Computed example of a mutant assay.
Amino acid sequence: MHWSTPYVGLPWAETGDTPDGVSCWGLCVLVYREVLDLTLPSYAGLCACPAERRQIASTIGGEAAGALWRPVPLTTAREFDVAVFRVGELDAHVGLICTPTQALHITQGHDSAVLDLRAPRWASRFSGLYRHAEIMDRTRAA
């Protein structure tokens, strides 16, 4: 069974990061915690309402430029990389790479699902791909 299978069909919850309900970032937090035994920062306090998307996008951008995440080309996508997507003009949605062409994600009002990165809806909104520094370090050590 693929690691993503138990995470498909989870319900949406604004700041959730448990199997009872997740946000897009909360889904990443949950998977990293349960599958990789890595703790990601929680941005729950930043997700109070959709009107604060600029602040969320700024946080995503700041983290992406920091030591925790390293940008990688989409052509090198690997499991557990975080794909960032635009919502309007802001980078405010994320998903986890399952296969080189698919990502696990969730959007408000829907259950978590696997999306096709090549689908026009997602390909046109793709903004960047990031790999956790510890995963890169584990790969180098192996």
Score class of each variant (00 low, 15 high):
residue 139 T to Y: 11
residue 63 E to K: 00
residue 5 T to N: 03
residue 36 L to M: 10
residue 28 C to A: 15
residue 109 G to K: 10
residue 25 W to V: 07
residue 89 E to A: 12
residue 68 L to G: 01
residue 83 A to H: 07
residue 67 A to T: 11
residue 64 A to F: 05
residue 125 R to D: 10
residue 33 R to M: 01
residue 4 S to Y: 01
residue 124 S to N: 10
residue 120 P to M: 04
residue 24 C to T: 02
residue 85 F to I: 06
residue 35 V to W: 00
residue 75 T to L: 04
residue 110 H to T: 11
residue 8 V to T: 10
residue 63 E to H: 08
residue 82 V to G: 09
residue 38 L to V: 11
residue 61 G to N: 04
residue 60 I to H: 08
residue 99 T to Y: 10
residue 137 D to V: 02
residue 119 A to G: 04
residue 132 H to P: 06
residue 54 R to L: 13
residue 136 M to S: 14
residue 126 F to S: 07
residue 65 A to F: 02
residue 85 F to G: 09
residue 50 P to Y: 04
residue 111 D to A: 15
residue 21 G to S: 00
residue 26 G to S: 08
residue 24 C to S: 11
residue 87 V to W: 07
residue 105 H to D: 15
residue 113 A to N: 13
residue 121 R to S: 12
residue 129 L to F: 08
residue 114 V to A: 12
residue 56 I to F: 15
residue 124 S to W: 10
residue 85 F to W: 11
residue 51 A to H: 11
residue 114 V to G: 03
residue 115 L to F: 11
residue 22 V to A: 00
residue 2 H to P: 12
residue 26 G to Y: 06
residue 52 E to A: 15
residue 94 V to N: 08
residue 120 P to L: 08
residue 74 L to C: 06
residue 20 D to G: 13
residue 44 A to G: 15
residue 9 G to E: 07
residue 45 G to T: 12
residue 35 V to E: 15
residue 106 I to A: 12
residue 13 A to H: 03
residue 121 R to L: 14
residue 141 A to V: 03
residue 18 T to M: 01
residue 50 P to Q: 13
residue 30 L to Q: 02
residue 105 H to K: 10
residue 47 C to Q: 14
residue 95 G to C: 10
residue 73 P to Q: 02
residue 33 R to T: 04
residue 65 A to H: 04
residue 135 I to L: 15
residue 84 V to D: 02
residue 95 G to Q: 06
residue 47 C to Y: 09
residue 49 C to P: 00
residue 34 E to T: 12
residue 133 A to K: 05
residue 99 T to G: 04
residue 55 Q to E: 15
residue 26 G to Q: 09
residue 84 V to Y: 06
residue 101 T to H: 13
residue 116 D to I: 04
residue 38 L to M: 13
residue 98 C to I: 06
residue 122 W to V: 12
residue 71 P to V: 01
residue 65 A to R: 14
residue 66 G to T: 04
residue 15 T to G: 03
residue 55 Q to D: 13
residue 40 L to Q: 10
residue 10 L to Q: 01
residue 23 S to Q: 11
residue 2 H to K: 07
residue 81 D to H: 08
residue 71 P to C: 01
residue 118 R to I: 00
residue 40 L to R: 11
residue 79 E to G: 13
residue 58 S to V: 00
residue 76 T to G: 03
residue 8 V to G: 06
residue 64 A to Q: 09
residue 142 A to P: 00
residue 71 P to E: 13
residue 7 Y to K: 01
residue 88 G to C: 01
residue 24 C to G: 08
residue 44 A to R: 14
residue 105 H to P: 02
residue 87 V to S: 07
residue 17 D to Q: 11
residue 68 L to V: 05
